[in-house]
């Protein structure tokens, strides 16, 4: 952080992690070509994974991970009180993500499968996105979070502007990249009802969309199920695929 060229007031940002793989934070450290430029405009005041310092308040708190224990609930309330703007980073924080798959089974069963007779040693709650507990100002979707979207939100907030929220499906971006449709290649894909903003990265690398960015507003889920079953999945398989990252938003939809 070079102080001599920096603007007078840098915005103070902090990073926190809850129940997650910390891959979104890592993805941010993977902005090797941008990270020093970003640091010209902001001051990182708390980031446990990379530094010892702690702070009392922050302009923007970026938060990765789901809420899944009583301690998480206390911590997120505390962070919300200290943060002017709170941004959910990645699917676990924005939509519950892969963590919420455990909600599909009775919580007692889940605890027993993993810890056996020691299951009561460690308290747990159904996995939730941050918005289930506190007000979330902005969401950066994806598993891991999309780097272009992170940069766009980061720049907008650094300039005091509201970031744009993508709401078209992944198919739009996939078409713009002129990819051959994966359904035409005999695969099944969740692109038609998944929120864009990832530049259709998975289909562009020949892999189906897993729905990691959450569903578009007002998705036609029945039509999606029809497409999936028309392309060879059983109804049960199609439902399971849809719930991979979206179990929290739609726990009852496909029962």
């Amino acid at each position: 952080m070079t102080t001599q060229t920096a603007p007078k007031t840098k915005i103070k940002i902090a990073y926190f992690d809850f129940t997650s793989c910390e891959g979104c934070q890592l993805n941010k450290l993977n902005l090797e070509n941008h990270i020093l430029d970003l640091l010209e405009h902001v001051e990182i005041v708390e980031f446990r994974e990379a530094m010892d310092d702690k702070a009392d308040s922050y302009d923007v708190a970026f938060i990765e991970g789901s809420i899944s224990t009583p301690t998480c609930v206390e911590r997120i309330h505390d962070i919300r009180r200290r943060a002017k703007i709170l941004v959910a980073l990645g699917s676990c924080a924005s939509i519950g993500g892969i963590n919420a798959m455990k909600n599909l089974q009775p919580i007692e069963d889940v605890r027993e499968i993993v810890y056996g007779e020691d299951k009561y040693l460690f308290p747990t709650l159904p996995a939730m996105p941050l918005s289930a507990i506190v007000k979330v100002d902005y969401e950066i979707h994806g598993c891991p979070m999309s780097i272009p979207e992170f940069l766009q939100v980061f720049k907008a907030l650094a300039m005091g502007k509201a970031p744009i929220k993508p709401d078209s499906p992944v198919c739009v971006e996939c078409k713009l990249r002129e990819n051959e449709c994966l359904f035409d290649r005999g695969m099944v894909c969740l692109g038609p009802i998944t929120r864009s903003g990832c530049d259709a990265i998975c289909p562009s690398f020949g892999q189906f969309c897993t729905g990691c960015r959450g569903l578009v507003p007002n998705p036609n889920k029945n039509a999606m199920l029809d497409i999936l079953t028309d392309h060879g999945l059983s109804l049960q398989e199609a439902e399971k695929r849809l719930l991979l990252f979206n179990s929290y938003q739609h726990p009852d939809t496909f029962k």
Binding site: E22, G23, M101, I113, V114
Partner: peptide
């Protein structure tokens, strides 16, 4: 760290999805 119960989540999942799910155990070692 909050437990995440991956082994329970994997039950009933297709072999196509297993690595997609388990890579999410860890961002650094995905």
């Amino acid at each position: 760290e909050a437990p995440r119960y991956f082994e329970a989540m994997l039950k009933g999942r297709s072999f196509h999805d297993a690595a997609i799910i388990t890579s999410r155990i860890c961002g650094i070692c995905s």
